[in-house]
Design a protein around this nucleic acid. Structure first.
Lengths: 202, 202
DNA sequence: TCGATATTGGACTGACCAGTCCGAAATCAG
DNA sequence: CTGATTTCGGACTGGTCAGTCCAATATCGA
């Protein structure tokens, strides 16, 4: 009976996500979102409720995209050091694309709305939590295998790894060179399994 | 002859800086700035030129404040490992204050305007550059003294240290616990001079 | 005291903002 | 073909935005 909807909800969500990703929350006006999605104002409001509600759905979609893309290696059973390394490799590869300059949507939202918007904080916090627990599991496995010799607990090293990731995303948004990003990743991964510094003397 | 100005320019700048620091650029409206500084609109425009120009002066003042406060240890002659550690100690101490939740003004500006505003990028880039070259000098000294055994170049380790700092500031803005921030710093500093992992066997 | 000069308060502008609303158009069961 | 039902286009609202402008005010050398 009803008129059929003229757009694909998930495709629209994806376009809106990229718009927020590029410009952040405030700087991405409804008019921008309408232009990016092709929706009319009433369709957008009927479908998503409003700008903030749309952002929340975009953050959710962003999280799902992360775990289907760069963070996917952490989901493998028995993920270990190679998978941690693979995550950073993928992050670096993405940062090298034109779109890589946008950094991380969640980070941008934290920086812009950090703590002021409870719903957004919850959404970004959920993403952070999932990534970090993935790191922690992989670290634990890698430690058990002796791939990671750093004796700090998996949770602590996961915080450290996630912190490096945050910094990388901000640096990418600032337009950092690939060399710079690579340097940071190299030192970070080295910190997990430092080469036995002084092997035989002293 | 002229009427005397009724406010202290540097005091006003300081208040404006804290307003931007708290809310970022866009979310801090001129009305907020007027309320924070006590100026009238015409005084603000006569004195600073406009909102963006005011932000640029605030970033400059922010940089000066950094080098008089938390980053000061890096300016000492022969700054070395202890001074690097002291910088992080000061950052952690500041993050523990109520105002610490604001993170870093420069980082927030990068996240919000990253790359889109050339003047702001130049201002934040100058701050980054100064901090990083301070780190690099201290790293070089510490390596020469044997305090830092990590063989990466001072420039590379400085990038790594600055990246940790960026992440910390974002985490602070997200409301991270002190324990979390301490963990990250501990692992970071350990990466510079890792304990000789396996001293005698294998 | 007085006038040249600069500061100040606040009204004003035009643009943009998120969000509401309703008539018109499209759909499809009957 | 018809009418109930939903989507869609776009006008509209009230509010806020950065920035302009000018008259009123305060200052201080002369």
């Amino acid at each position: 009976m009803p008129r059929t909807r003229e757009f694909d909800r998930t495709a629209v969500l994806d376009k809106a996500m990229h718009a927020f990703w590029e410009g952040g929350y405030r700087a991405t006006s409804l008019d921008h979102l309408l232009a990016a999605t092709g929706l009319s104002k009433s369709s957008l409001y009927d479908t998503f409720g409003g700008k903030q509600a749309l952002l929340l759905e975009c953050l959710d979609a962003y999280g799902r995209q992360l775990f289907a893309g760069p963070i996917e290696p952490l989901l493998r059973v028995d993920a270990a050091f190679d998978d941690i390394r693979e995550v950073f490799t993928r992050i670096l590869a993405h940062a090298a694309t034109p779109a890589g300059r946008r950094g991380c949507l969640a980070n941008t939202c934290i920086g812009e709305l950090g703590g002021r918007d409870a719903a957004v904080s919850a959404a970004t916090g959920a993403i952070v939590e999932r990534i970090e627990s993935g790191f922690a599991a992989a670290v634990a496995t890698a430690q058990a295998r002796g791939e990671i010799t750093n004796p700090e607990s998996p949770a602590v090293l996961a915080r450290f790894l996630f912190n490096t990731l945050s910094g990388l995303n901000l640096a990418a948004r600032a337009g950092a060179s690939h060399e710079r990003l690579h340097d940071i990743v190299r030192v970070t991964l080295d910190a997990l399994a430092p080469a036995p510094a002084v092997a035989h003397t002293e």
